[in-house]
Design a protein around this nucleic acid. Structure first.
Lengths: 197, 197
DNA sequence: TCAGACGGTTTAACACCGTTAACTGACCAC
DNA sequence: GTGGTCAGTTAACGGTGTTAAACCGTCTGA
């Protein structure tokens, strides 16, 4: 771990420095290697300082998770503005989900408690996660306007298929190259979207 | 934790006592609460004794995982003997997967590193897991005889949909009752199987 | 100038973790 | 009796999340 910043100026900078460091360690060594002391070392402080910014490790993880959902929200919003065709919309949203998991695996892992990342705060209690869900449900609704419960079911199925495939692809990435899994993912999501018609 | 057995007779009994205890703690308090010392306390031994039977916690988890896959293998085999219709076969296998996750969640969790369970040994290196995969691929092959790679892809998709739905159902079980999710699961798997035709 | 307060930071500690080395005590063969 | 083996223990190492106590420099009021 290199020094992210020796002695940060503002409080906000220190906060984001901690987050940045946690993600960097997770990316290189896996979430199970992320410890408060290691983070503190990297930002050149002692461990208790971290608790000035985050009440617990759990809350730090939750923050990173929410950061991930906020990022996803913005990306989804961009897609919804870009395309009008509902089929295209949902498919592109699916692709964004893949790209996100691929390029920022350490965030994706903590969002869904994968690969040693473990945040005890239930993900469905996250405000940002709910907002992302709402956005996807709107996209589905604009596709097939049904009752709320039906939309919820479809959203559940979409997330199960999308996240299920991503998770399995990550799990078997040493067995089956990710580029190959991506092809399967695209095919799967294309079919899912098509069958909504 | 109650005493499983005070002073076991055979070596094999002690071994399975450790496994049984680990699962019991996991079921009640979650995998993140399972520690070598806690297991040792429950079987009324000191911690190092556990290492007489398992070289590491990782290997203990791997053993439980393999036990799960062996159980699944037997269930799948039973289904294959029971039914001849390929469509029925794959659907019933899917249902078994759900039932297993539902009734033995602590084993299912360790098989796929969910909910705080974390075994660093890659699951795809497990002999038993490969055998289960082979069985399911055979079931798919008897359905649509294609080239090996195609079958592998279909198996990948089947596992992604099945496990993805199960995992999401478990994740959201406080939001959406499992009985309700089971309905969605059945519908999803029925459709998956139907579309193989 | 000195006392005191305060904010930022560190040290030390607690109770836990996985893991291993060293030790203890009972039994058995010679 | 003496030596050896074996089951089981205690104690320790380095790590974890977390918190209380202490430290230390600066700034303020008298």
């Amino acid at each position: 771990m290199e020094t992210i910043e020796r002695k940060p100026r503002s409080r906000e900078q220190a906060r984001s420095g901690i987050i940045k460091t946690a993600k960097a360690i997770a990316r290189q060594e896996g979430w199970q290697a992320v410890s408060i002391r290691k983070i503190a070392d990297a930002i050149e402080y002692s461990a208790p300082i971290v608790y000035e910014y985050f009440d617990s490790k759990d809350i730090l993880l939750d923050e990173i998770r929410n950061e991930g959902f906020r990022h996803l929200y913005q990306e989804y919003e961009r897609i919804l503005k870009l395309y009008r065709d509902p089929e295209k919309r949902l498919y592109e949203i699916s692709l964004v989900q893949w790209q996100f998991a691929r390029h920022q695996p350490e965030i994706y892992q903590v969002m869904y408690n994968m690969d040693g990342a473990f945040c005890t705060i239930p993900v469905y209690q996250s405000e940002t996660m709910q907002e992302v869900s709402r956005l996807v449900r709107e996209a589905i609704f604009s596709f097939i306007p049904k009752a709320e419960e039906s939309i919820k079911r479809l959203h559940f199925q979409w997330l199960a298929v999308s996240h299920g495939t991503i998770m399995l692809a990550m799990m078997l990435k040493d067995e089956r190259p990710l580029d190959q899994s991506e092809q399967i993912y695209q095919e799967t999501m294309r079919r899912f979207v098509r069958e909504l018609r």
